[in-house]
Design a protein around this nucleic acid. Structure first.
Lengths: 217, 217, 217, 217
DNA sequence: AATGAATGAGGATTCATTCAT
DNA sequence: TATGAATGAATCCTCATTCAT
């Protein structure tokens, strides 16, 4: 599936890219503040630094802006995720590192993640698949890292389990953003990473309690 | 914190309750289909079976409807959660049962959960706390059950861990609804319950394989 | 073919009729002054004496107004035409009378005829047939009167000729309106009626010259 | 009255002529399809084969395009009319020939005639007279031919009658275009010419029936 | 209590025209 | 001369809310 094309009247590709970046930047700020529906196209144009007429030289409909914004945020998150994720090693340690990095990215991009998270549903049936595809790609990155660990014999997991784990990691990252109203009151980012990682690896029964039992070995 | 009062012009409390129930029922259906913003008050009135004028006898603003809807859904979920959750026993078994029941409730009320999930953010700063409060109450229910297990010596967990676990369980339930576009393609509800429960209790390293290997160490 | 229904949100049929009459009246005046395209919906609402919101309670789109206007004008012309046209007699005299009456109606409703004449083409492919149908009905009225004359032996004409004549009469009526910028400078209405009637009955060769040949009279 | 000047920024007269011809050609096609108001200047520029910027080097306003188009169409029709019309002979035969030729021109240029017919009214008060002048010139051509017949003693008509006849001929030509939705369903062009010519010359009473009666006189 | 007609602020989008390159 | 990006006034239409009946 290729990138969904948002039609622009302006031909100069470089300009289109530039203007759309302005646009996205302005729009994200607004969407964070008031959400997609409560943001007007005029506000977007203004925030982007050009007139309403110009805005419409680079998009067809307001929804295009939303698509562009979501698309862009996903790209950013994914890119940063990709940098951090060492997809070669296949060791427990590198997996832990990957999770930690991902959570940190989410933390830094909280606002963006939140927007994307809350507004994707406003995308038309037409645009949605393109965005969901990207989400799955990110999940697949975790899947890959975990799979490597399995292949290396560091973990023993079925394919179903691997997939489930990848989804869980992904959602727990987002969770840090969309439940920040409560989680970030209780935990620091480091604590959150530590706790989630421990729980993920040890499970409820394998945590502290299990440790205590281990002296016997 | 008491229930937020939505003002009605009509005095007869019984009637208010009745009309609001009609209203909520109609609105949920509409919100599921088109979301809050794309649903008009006229549509809500029609779906509820009365006129737009009458609608406004029972609410002050459109947002009131959203609040009422979210509130109602939370109440339903919570109530059903409460029925299932045996908050006395404090055994691993009853915790597993509780999780399973919760996931099943979410499965049955998928649409509602989704609406609530996606539209809460449209609530005003004014109404939001009341709804989030309810969410925390539900989390607290899991917290309580887990705590009992700890107190009974079935599990050994810190308070931070308990809280984290409760949030994880809660979110993993919702996840079944809001990620249904991918999860429900891969797993049946039973599988999902099984997998998540196993992972929760054993963690990645504690799953079947790891257990087998541990004797050797 | 039944009347094309223009949807109204308001149920009360009497009110719909009343408001639409106001609307049409205002719109005709505006269309006469500036044409359909240069008239805004707000102006129409204002001219009708109510708000833009109310306007849209009685129509779906701006084009509906145009349809309503054209429809109404046709109805008026047709009705007045029908009153005047003695469709029973079937004598040359009554035909002449009919033409004269028709031309007088056009003269009185010049502005309306002009509007209809110039704006029908702006109707959508959807609405156009309904309006053209009415035009044909009017032509058919003349056709009928002429046919009667033929049946009475007052005239001897083929069906093709009858149809052609009916169309000619109809267009010559309209012509008085749409070519008024020149015709009405040269002729009074009475002259116009006299000239057209004479030409119609006698033809070029049968006019003045023919008189000379009629020594018998 | 001289040709109304449409201002151009470009000086080179030859270029102006060339570009305007491109422009008119493109615009006519568009006006035929969607009418003047629904055609955008961008579309016109595109259809003409140059940019919007260039378009405005050769006109001042969108209305100028309409004027240019109407003017051009009139010129074409008039020119072709002029070729056909033998303005010297002054015989019934040459008049009939002229009418027939004119009707054929209209038939061939239907779309153009229609555009001109329907859109002239959109011209500003400023430009209108220039176009109407051309129309009168065409009418005058018929007037002239008929007058010659009168002078030659082939016809006996008053000046009023001559003018009326000229207008009738002119309108009956246009009629073939603007009432084509019905006329062209009923008649072939040849039939139409035949019928109209006969009616014009003989009148209702002078057709077949009258002929029969004439022996008696 | 119920109704639904009326309101008008507000929002998305278009398009003629300009002007710097 | 030619280009096409930028502009923003103008326009159609929607919809939450009110209020007289």
């Amino acid at each position: 599936m290729k990138k969904r094309q948002v039609q622009a009247s302006v031909k100069d590709e470089r300009l289109v890219k530039k203007r759309r970046d302005q646009m996205i930047k302005g729009a994200v700020t607004l969407f964070i503040q008031k959400g997609f529906h409560r943001t007007t196209t005029r506000e977007i144009a203004k925030a982007a630094g050009f007139s309403i007429g110009t805005l419409y030289e680079y998009i067809r409909t307001k929804e295009d802006v939303l698509y562009l914004v979501c698309d862009s945020i996903y790209d950013q998150v994914r890119e940063r995720l990709y940098e951090g994720l060492d997809t070669k090693k296949g060791t427990i340690e590198s997996l832990k590192q990957g999770i930690s990095d991902y959570f940190k990215v989410v933390d830094e991009m909280q606002d963006e993640v939140l927007v994307m998270y809350q507004e994707v549903k406003s995308l038309s049936k037409d645009a949605l698949p393109y965005v969901l595809k990207k989400e799955l790609e990110m999940v697949a990155m975790f899947e890959h890292v975990v799979t490597l660990c399995v292949e290396n014999g560091e973990l023993e997991l079925s394919m179903e389990e691997v997939k489930m784990i990848a989804h869980n990691i992904f959602v727990q990252g987002q969770m840090w953003a969309f439940r920040r109203w409560t989680l970030q009151k209780m935990y620091s980012l480091e604590q959150y990473i530590q706790l989630q990682t421990d729980l993920l690896f040890q499970g409820i029964q394998g945590s502290a309690a299990a440790v205590e039992f281990q002296p016997d070995t």
